[in-house]
Computed example of a mutant assay.
Amino acid sequence: MIHPVAGLPSGYGAAPETAPEAPSPVRVMVAASVRLVRDGLAHTLGTATEVVAVTADGCATLREIARLEPGLLLLDVSMEGALGLVQQMARAAPGTRVVAFAVDDAHDDQLLAWAEAGVVGWVGRDASADDVVQAVLRAARGELLCSARTAALLSARLALLARQGRVAAPPGHAGQLTPREAEVGELLARGCSNKHIARVLGLQLATVKNHVHSILEKLEVRSRGEAGALLRGTHAGV
């Protein structure tokens, strides 16, 4: 029989408890066309995450995501082709979540366009450094940091899409709108200019003009105003 030795603390000689492993930090990439912006964001995030790379354009971003497989990308929406990049990532890198940075959250169209493209969070133009960090960390946990107004906007949009399904041309008119034409048509019905539509959807202005021309032909109308009126009537009847 082994007796405890006097003078030694209780538990002496027992196997030391194994300290729980600290969770791995979130691996983040930062993409922004302006160096000062991407370096500042990387520095801000470095206190709470592991920043694995910074990139300045879409091609480099896709290449580094394929190589490094980060858990999350913080993307500046002012970078050329940013919205299209998110749409590409949904197919090519579904394991990397995207948080959009510097979104103009005063415009519902922009918020909806980014949400539909596949971002899991966004940070407005007036956000603080702490807001950026919190948005990234929450997105990594599968949570969305947003205002009550934004949550209501997303809920209403989800309900509309569920009812709407694939958008058809109004009854009695030729053909159906393609998914991209439906997106352009919805903004057209809201009175948005071609330039605004191009900016929201991340398209070239010439591409938007082609879509508008196709919509007018399919709806058998001559003007944007007539097309908008028909499309507004279609949405109201959904």
Results as ranks from 00 to 15, higher is better:
V26M: 13
V26E: 12
V26W: 12
R27A: 11
R27Q: 13
V28I: 08
V28G: 07
V28Y: 04
V28A: 08
V30T: 09
V30A: 07
A31C: 13
A31M: 05
A31I: 05
A32G: 02
V34S: 12
R35I: 07
R35V: 08
L36C: 09
L36Y: 11
L36G: 09
V37W: 06
V37R: 09
V37A: 09
V37C: 07
R38N: 00
D39T: 13
D39F: 13
D39P: 06
L41Y: 09
L41E: 08
L41Q: 10
L41F: 10
A42D: 02
H43K: 10
H43W: 11
T44N: 13
T44V: 14
G46N: 04
G46L: 03
G46E: 05
T47E: 15
T47F: 14
E50R: 12
E50G: 03
V51S: 08
V52C: 14
V52F: 11
V52D: 10
V52N: 11
V52P: 11
A53T: 09
A53Y: 07
V54Q: 11
V54S: 09
V54L: 03
V54I: 12
T55E: 15
A56S: 15
A56N: 14
A56P: 11
D57H: 05
D57F: 01
D57V: 01
D57K: 02
G58Y: 10
G58M: 13
C59V: 15
C59R: 14
C59N: 15
A60N: 15
A60W: 12
A60H: 14
L62W: 00
L62I: 01
L62A: 02
E64G: 09
I65H: 00
R67Q: 04
R67W: 01
L68S: 05
E69Y: 02
E69D: 10
P70E: 00
P70S: 01
G71L: 03
G71Y: 04
L72W: 03
L72T: 05
L72V: 03
L72S: 03
L72C: 03
